[in-house]
């Protein structure tokens, strides 16, 4: 890399996008704390906090998966650099969500938890999604990225699996049936459709077709020299 550019980059301040992401990143937690202090966490606060943390985790996970398509579709390159922060916020909320469930809801009582974690699909899927995220979070530092080379990319492709399992977890935690489109499934359904869209946009053929379109669009939009 050109040394001059490195220097310039070091000088650069936080971009507005970074500021927005970090504010959004802490907002759900701050909100929970404010609602806790003002006794606004509903009359079933443990469940409310658990669910809010879980939803936040899902939203950040989906947001982290939206970065690449945003670049493909609109050429928004900076999004690629923000994947890590979004992914780590997803991990933060997933950890708090899991801790809340195991520690506060079930008070670490292992004999009760065993039955839940090993036999209930929603809990099983939640655990699976979380366990997938753990190595991804640990290896999210640049050092690992360099050290692991191609292996890093392969490992981090697991995030697709984590996201699919997470949406299934969400759907299973609700009273309804995603497969027959009945019951309380609107939110998991929206999240699932969004996830499918984001994954489809990554299929090489689709991706190439879109960037081809974009190039042509760009060329047409350019003012013609005749003018």
């Amino acid at each position: 890399m050109d040394p001059k550019r490195v220097k310039v980059r070091r000088k650069a301040r936080l971009s507005w996008l970074q500021v927005v992401i970090h504010i959004l990143g802490w907002l759900p937690l701050a909100w929970i704390i404010v609602d806790f202090l003002t006794a606004n966490l509903t009359i079933n606060p443990i469940q409310e906090v658990t669910q809010r943390l879980g939803r936040s985790a899902a939203y950040f996970l989906i947001a982290s998966l939206a970065c690449t398509p945003l670049n493909t579709l609109f050429g928004w390159r900076e999004m690629l650099k923000r994947r890590r922060a979004l992914g780590l916020y997803a991990f933060l909320y997933a950890s708090l969500h899991a801790l809340m469930f195991i520690g506060v809801d079930y008070g670490f009582s292992l004999n009760v938890l065993n039955e839940v974690l090993l036999t209930k699909p929603y809990a099983l899927m939640g655990m699976t999604a979380f366990l997938i995220l753990v190595p991804l979070a640990i290896t999210s530092f640049k050092w690992f990225m360099k050290k692991m080379g191609r292996g890093w990319t392969s490992l981090h492709r697991l995030v697709y699996l984590a996201a699919v399992v997470d949406v299934a977890h969400y759907a299973w935690a609700k009273k309804g049936n995603l497969l027959t489109l009945s019951g309380d499934i609107l939110k998991p359904l929206i999240l699932g459709l969004l996830l499918i869209l984001l994954l489809v946009l990554r299929i090489p053929v689709v991706r190439k077709w879109i960037s081809g379109l974009r190039q042509r669009f760009k060329a047409r939009g350019r003012p013609s020299p005749a003018r």
Binding site: I43, N44, D105, G107, V112, E115, K120, P121, A173, K175
Partner: peptide, 15 residues
Amino acid sequence: RWSQASERRIGELNR
């Protein structure tokens, strides 16, 4: 879907 072995009484901390 859910375990029915325990429950949370609204207003209580422990199941």
